[in-house]
Design a protein around this nucleic acid. Structure first.
Lengths: 108, 108
DNA sequence: AGTTTCCATCGTTCATCGCCGATAAACGAT
DNA sequence: ATCGTTTATCGGCGATGAACGATGGAAACT
């Protein structure tokens, strides 16, 4: 029962973390931002603003969400800001979902 | 409804659909529900209510979200309702995220 | 008959999201 | 020193999300 409880806690905690990661990507604009970031080593906020038809403040917010979720690395570069896709984190998230899917399809 | 899609909207449309799928899973409770559904061929609303400490109406809502996202199949079984995990749809979602991740990691 | 059980839906409350305009700080250029 | 550019953050507004209780309908049990 001790191990069972720990398993449950583990599952619940994993669910929470996975949900947080998925929530960060659960918006078309943020997926587009990730796609854009994938094409280059890094870019600044302005680049994204030019690409998407959204206000600069809105883009900044979306970038913040991605950074807080750990999917994008942020480093203030003088005037410009430097946003870089954390591909390892993205892979982790994808793997987590894949693992959940595999667990769910174990019997088929 | 949305049978007409311009080529330019292809990426945006894919992002939108992926975002919708991820949003359905972007909640710890719904992930737990999916996990629970994975352990059996099907179950009713009551089963989930007993497992999670939430009101029956809340659970019903979460199930509805999963059904509308296509991740869970629903068939009214006499008195009880029958919810069944659509493992193929879950795999599709997982694959979509994996594809995005691969696209983003093509150069590494 | 009446009753219980299971379920979906409605209405409400509260919090969060998504978007914007405005603002101020930081930096580069003139 | 004064622009122009870039950026993050604030305040506000409408929309959505998440939770609950209450209600009513349908099936099953007494």
């Amino acid at each position: 029962m001790e191990t069972l409880l720990e398993d449950d806690d583990c599952n619940a905690s994993a669910s929470r973390r996975l949900a947080e990661g998925l929530a960060a990507l659960a918006h078309p604009t943020r997926i587009e931002i990730v796609r854009h970031l994938a094409g280059q080593p890094a870019c600044c906020c302005r680049d994204v603003v030019d690409r998407l038809d959204l206000a600069q403040s809105t883009v900044s917010q979306h970038l913040k969400v991605l950074v807080e979720a750990g999917l994008v690395r942020f480093s203030p570069d003088r005037q410009r800001s430097r946003y870089e896709l954390d591909r390892a984190a993205l892979k982790d998230l994808s793997s987590s979902l894949a693992r959940l899917t595999e667990d769910c399809c174990a019997g088929c």
